[in-house]
């Protein structure tokens, strides 16, 4: 049995003071402790961005890949090594913009992995550009001086429409609640998606206000129609496990084929 702090690698995070990702890091260590996770059997896979640095800070195996591709790396690893607990993670730009297509297909494919998106509605590492989840009229980026002028992406609704079998939203201001969600997500058989509202005090100081506006919703359902109704009426600041409906995971186990002579088909 390990303590949460024993799951930290000792590498010092590069994050700014007050960054929400510290809380996500702590929540993961708490969830691992609760799961009695053998560190060598967990792999954290990430893309590029502030949040994607997290695997190096955890005492487990990790893979820090290229921008937007955490999900394919994680899926390939899990299909090849089903014995491992594979958790993909990253930010909102990594997951919903450059990696958006993989998000759709990971939800569809339902490989048994967890995907944690630390959503701060901004590209922090490139110094504050708008991301897919940035509010339409957020005017603080030089790249989009009039605001993105595009409706924000709705991660949970899209996850539902794409076939995710576990959908939750957590908040960095509530690491215990997030640790609980992670615990449940790891236990879930299939693709489990957690959007974490993880504040960026540097580029979006207004997110400090989330501690007053984020609200717990106890709406967990296995009915996709009910979940869709809730998510389309959602203000984006509800937290909780919204949807959980196990379905067959990929790869489907086929009846074991007899070992074959690979060469037979070439013989006359």
């Amino acid at each position: 049995m390990m303590l949460p702090k024993e799951y930290k690698s000792g590498v010092k995070p590069i994050w700014c003071p007050g960054c929400g990702h510290f809380a996500v890091l702590n929540a993961i260590t708490k969830a691992f402790a609760a799961l009695e996770q053998a560190p060598e059997n967990a792999v954290l896979v990430s893309g590029i961005g502030c949040s994607s640095r997290l695997p190096a800070y955890i005492n487990s195996y990790g893979f820090h890949g290229v921008h937007g591709r955490a999900l394919p790396v994680a899926a390939g690893l899990k299909v090849a090594r089903p014995d491992l607990n594979v958790i993909a993670m990253g930010g909102d730009g990594d997951g919903f913009s450059i990696g958006g297509n993989h998000f759709l297909h990971a939800c569809r494919r339902n490989v048994d992995i967890v995907y944690v998106v630390m959503d701060n509605e901004v590209y922090g590492m490139t110094k504050g550009q708008a991301s897919p989840t940035t509010p339409e009229h957020w005017e603080h980026s030089k790249l989009t001086p009039h605001g993105p002028e595009v409706r924000p992406f709705q991660p949970c609704a899209i996850a539902l429409a794409s076939g995710a079998s576990f959908i939750a939203r957590g908040y960095s201001g509530d690491p215990n609640g997030l640790a609980h969600m992670l615990f449940e997500a790891v236990q879930h058989q299939g693709f489990a998606f957690i959007q974490v509202l993880s504040q960026c005090p540097t580029f979006c100081p207004e997110q400090v206000g989330w501690k007053k506006t984020v609200h717990l919703e106890d709406t967990c359902t296995d009915d996709p129609v009910q979940a869709a109704a809730f998510l389309h009426g959602d203000d984006g600041l509800a937290k909780g496990i919204f949807y959980r409906r196990p379905r067959p995971t990929w790869p489907v186990q086929h009846q074991s084929t007899e070992p074959v002579n690979l060469r037979k088909g070439f013989e006359l």
């Binding site: 792999v43 896979v45 893979f63 890949g65 290229v66 937007g68 591709r69 999900l71 394919p72 790396v73 994680a74 899926a75 390939g76 690893l77 899990k78 299909v79 090849a80 090594r81 491992l84 297509n101 993989h102 759709l104 297909h105 790869p251 086929h254 084929t257 007899e258 070992p259 074959v260 690979l262």
Partner: peptide, 28 residues
């Protein structure tokens, strides 16, 4: 599958190569 492996039809080449890297990292 008859030799205990898997083939994934990925959503695009970006996914394909990264899945392959994931499996390779896992020692497969």
């Amino acid at each position: 599958e008859s030799v205990g492996g898997h083939l994934v039809q990925a959503e695009d080449e970006l996914a394909a190569v990264n899945m392959t890297i994931g499996a390779g990292f896992g020692g497969i």
